[in-house]
Simulated scan of single mutants.
Amino acid sequence: MKAALLLRALTASLVAALLAAWPAGAETLDKVSFGTNWVAEAEHGGFFQAVADGTYRKYGLDVTIVPGGPNENNRMLLVAGKIDFFMAANTLMSFDAVANNVPVVTIAAIFQKDPQVFLTHPELKITRLEELKPLTLFISKEGMSSYFQWLKSEYGFSDKNVRPYTFNAQPFIANGQSAMQGYVTSEPFAVEKAAGFKPNVILLADNGFNTYSTLIETRADVIDKKPDLVQRFVDASIVGWYNYIYGDNSAGNAMIKKLNPEMTDELLAYSVAKMKQYGIVDSGDSLRDGIGAMSDERVASFFNKMVKAGVVRSDIDYRKSYTLRFVNKAVGLELRPKN
């Protein structure tokens, strides 16, 4: 009996000693998985930055980024409960989720502006979207079913000049009377390298195509059961994006290059510069409410435009596609340069 009591006392003393030696504030990190919609690139940089520089860990998170790609469907993994968060391309995906009863919710909009542009040859000196109408337009199948329907509805574009865009710039380079779709952060760089000329760009977001882009999605059940974890992931991601855009992003870029060796320092620097120049990440409401900002008015405006263009049905309850619960809190504003 005495031996048993002595053993208990020694055990209690050992536990107390271990607890005393445990670092102040140490805690078990919550494991989180986040799926992107493409291979690692600068357009995902803030998320990689938050992993690489320890920001997620400061928020109590052990985050694994699961890169997407041409043969990956990380959104399905989110729906199936295999990952916790997903990076959706734009608000149209959010509307589509509601229309098809997919139980995902947008919780932050990292890009205030969609990076979608049209590239034109410099000698055409085109500065307005309407001036693209007479040109041969190289547009992808996805573009035809989304933003081009808005161009027809809003600006009177026609299908007759459209040619398939197969993500090969050569047809555009060879045809001086053409325009090609692309992202402001990448395709102009590729064309300049391949053709030796600097294309003009027309950003659709600056002409009324006001979708949010690079959204963070999660499942409704994650919001219900783990709201604190959701808030910490959103906040840490926002801080990661401030650090990537305005701070030392070398850690994030090193991680991107390790996962995607095709990413060069030159392209990464170009992409970041264009995101800053055009206000892709930080402009409009985010200047007041912080990166990730969203508003009811903005979502309603885009929904109405897409209904008018015949892209989405008018009877869906688009308000179910997103929540403002986790954004507009001015997180990270102090990280933006003052000048």
Rank of each mutant, 00 (worst) to 15 (best):
L6F: 09
L7N: 12
A16D: 09
A20W: 03
E27V: 14
K31N: 08
K31M: 11
S33L: 05
T36H: 12
E41R: 10
G54S: 08
T55A: 12
Y56N: 10
R57M: 05
Y59R: 02
Y59M: 01
V66Y: 08
P70T: 00
E72A: 15
M76G: 11
L77R: 13
V79Q: 00
A80F: 09
D84E: 04
D96Y: 15
N101M: 00
V105E: 06
A109Q: 06
F111W: 14
K113A: 02
E123R: 00
I126K: 03
L129C: 11
E130V: 11
E131W: 12
K133I: 05
K133R: 15
K133C: 13
P134T: 00
P134W: 01
L137S: 08
M144C: 03
S145W: 14
F157A: 01
K160F: 12
F167L: 13
F167V: 15
I173Q: 04
N175F: 10
A179L: 04
A179G: 09
M180A: 10
G182L: 06
Y183H: 15
S186C: 08
V191E: 01
G196R: 02
T211R: 07
Y212W: 15
V222H: 02
D224W: 07
K225C: 08
V230E: 00
R232N: 06
F233H: 12
D235M: 11
I238V: 11
G240D: 07
W241C: 03
Y242V: 15
Y244R: 09
A251Q: 12
G252F: 00
G252R: 13
I256Q: 07
L259M: 08
Y270V: 08
S271N: 06
V272A: 09
K276Y: 05
Y278D: 05
G279R: 04
I280F: 06
I280N: 05
V281L: 13
D285R: 12
S286R: 04
R288M: 02
A293G: 03
D296F: 11
S301Y: 15
S314V: 08
S314T: 10
K320G: 04
T323C: 02
T323M: 04
L324T: 00
E334C: 13
K338C: 02
